[in-house]
Design a protein around this nucleic acid. Structure first.
Lengths: 345, 345
DNA sequence: AGGTTTTACTAAACCGGTTCAGACCGGATA
DNA sequence: TATCCGGTCTGAACCGGTTTAGTAAAACCT
């Protein structure tokens, strides 16, 4: 376990000052071509890697990006979004010498503390903002802290008084919701329910708006909407309440796959046949969707690609000070056996 | 966004040298009680927080710990183990000023590179070792790199020639497997299959040994063992192969919940009634287990507590140079509706 | 040839902590 | 009174990079 080579070792071996080595390795002007190449070769030969902490100290840059997740670990475990998203981020970081600092906080109470700590300790150069909420308190907080960020999805248009907005990476989920709702309408369903996530979350209300609009266009009411916290437990209980109604729905659209799977379970429990008596759709198209019975119709998003894109945008934002928004291919429906013609009334 | 207070500001305000401030704040001897208190008060008043990067540079310590996960993101998403484990780790770190650096690499090929980079860049002071494998190459690698680690579960006893072994945090899963197998035997099952994870993983073979032993004690053969990669897809196909057998099993024990759920799906697909025609058990007792139909009998582990314990042990190892092993409460069976009496032959 | 600009490089300051050698001081010991 | 000693505290070196000010030599202009 020999000592790591430092910039001084390289300078000594090359017979130049360490300042010049720094210039040469960072592609800065003022170095003769000859010396630049020679220094590079020597650095390589010595297996020199600049010390991250030394560099951090003098540049006030940590070479790490952060992801703070404020969800109950139980839900996190059931929802395959984050692991895939993280894998996508990682795929980009691997080649860029960046590290991902992850923080999981059970509730939104301690969230601000975590961001403040991350900023005060200069642990990260920027963060990913997921699960956007209405009037998201994190956005002014991050502006106050001067912390760069990229948001997944577009936040609500502020009053315009705010500083330069954060870049946005969008994967539009409304086409998916519209398509899946239309799919059910086309199958003859007239009573369609929506089991959504917490409505303080932006995507929940945005999706519900798309849902309601599609129903309205077909002259149908969108009165069967139940809010949940995304857990399978609440997915099951919401399903129970819907099925208890006098004019119960013949189809239910769920905000994620775990809730839909729990819905399938409860429907079976009550002796309903799927999709003959009830059609069910999920969201995210997790791996399990294809293997439950009946196989779950779902809306496919692509968290892996989302992670990759967000990582690239955040890296550019940190490096250049600005980055363009990115729009990914919108979500689309994957039709399987859990949806079928509406039962005849 | 005013500039952060540095140790120099504190020293100046207290009228002492910065060395003394460092001593006072780090509880080291050689500081009068009076000055120690005064310096502390001033530091607090100035909202002073030592710079992590400066401290890292001079102590060669990063104040971060690492977790490298070598699993396909698809599986990661389906398996709720890691999110809960991470949440447990985080719960401890939050109060200790530590950060978690996460790396997800799709395959085991690039794993070594990641560890080497983490070590070379001194990104982390230690790592968590999960999913132990036979002759795990990471153990000698980490010893070579001089990187402290804590392992989840006990690695195979080496030849004794190795350096001081890493501390171990154990959550014994064999009692759970024994109990669930015995549960099926008690229900009258005689043909019991085991769908396990990759057998290069230690826990897969350890669990299968417990499984086989329990069957042997009851005079039954353990000939129906199928290896998978832990994905729902392979869980389903393994189930298919088992059900195609002439003397097919009446009960199947799965290595994780997603595979078991996929197994339930396939059994339904084939028109089998559960648990009348086939009993099924899972592993890990994820949230979804309780809500599928029929509700899944599973073996409950406690990843959250595991994460907490592992974090504490790793912190102590890094701080003190050694840490004692910890044994957590063993896994136990949670019986639900997916298991029932064996069908009469 | 003389003056100005460019280019290539060095030396030293700087980032913000930790740590070590030594100065200073009062009290105990010989 | 001289010596030693333990406790406090200072000053400076150090960690390993980046960056700036300054210098010497070379190139460019009339």
């Amino acid at each position: 376990m020999k000592r790591k080579a430092t910039i001084n070792d390289v300078a000594k071996a090359a017979g130049v000052s360490k300042g010049l080595v720094s210039f040469a390795l960072n592609d800065r002007p003022g170095v003769s071509a000859e010396n630049r190449d020679r220094i590079r070769d020597i650095a390589q030969a010595l297996d020199y890697r600049p010390s991250v902490s030394a560099r951090s100290l003098s540049t006030r840059t940590s070479y790490a990006l952060g992801l703070v997740i404020a969800r109950d670990p139980e839900i996190l475990g059931a929802d395959p979004f984050f692991p895939s998203f993280i894998a996508g981020v990682e795929r980009v970081f691997l080649h860029e010498g960046r590290a991902l600092v992850l923080s999981v906080v059970g509730d939104e109470q301690h969230e601000a503390t975590v961001y403040r700590t991350l900023a005060a300790d200069a642990r990260v150069d920027g963060v990913f903002l997921t699960d956007l909420r209405h009037d998201d308190p994190r956005i002014p907080l991050l502006h106050e802290l001067g912390m760069p960020a990229v948001t997944l999805g577009r936040p609500e248009g502020g009053a315009g008084s705010e500083p330069r907005p954060f870049p946005v990476v969008t994967l539009d989920d409304t086409p998916g919701i519209v398509a899946v709702t239309q799919h059910l309408i086309d199958l003859g369903h007239r009573r369609i329910a929506h089991v959504i996530g917490p409505h303080r979350m932006l995507h929940a209300s945005r999706r519900n708006a798309a849902f309601a609009q599609t129903l309205a266009a077909a002259g149908l009411p969108a009165d069967l909407v139940v809010e949940t916290d995304f857990t399978a437990e609440q997915g099951a209980s919401a399903t129970g309440r819907l099925l208890d109604l006098a004019d119960r729905p013949t189809a239910i659209v769920y905000g994620n796959d775990p809730m839909a799977i729990a819905g399938i379970g409860l429907a079976h429990e009550r002796g309903l046949r799927l999709p003959d008596d009830l059609s069910i759709t999920g969201f995210d198209d997790s791996e399990l969707a294809r293997y439950v019975y009946p196989a779950l119709t779902s809306v496919r998003t692509d968290p892996l690609r989302w992670g990759e894109a967000a990582a690239r945008v955040l890296l550019q934002l940190v490096a250049e000070g600005s980055a363009a928004d990115v729009d990914l291919e919108p979500a689309r429906v994957v039709t399987r056996a859990s949806t079928g013609p509406a039962p005849r009334a």
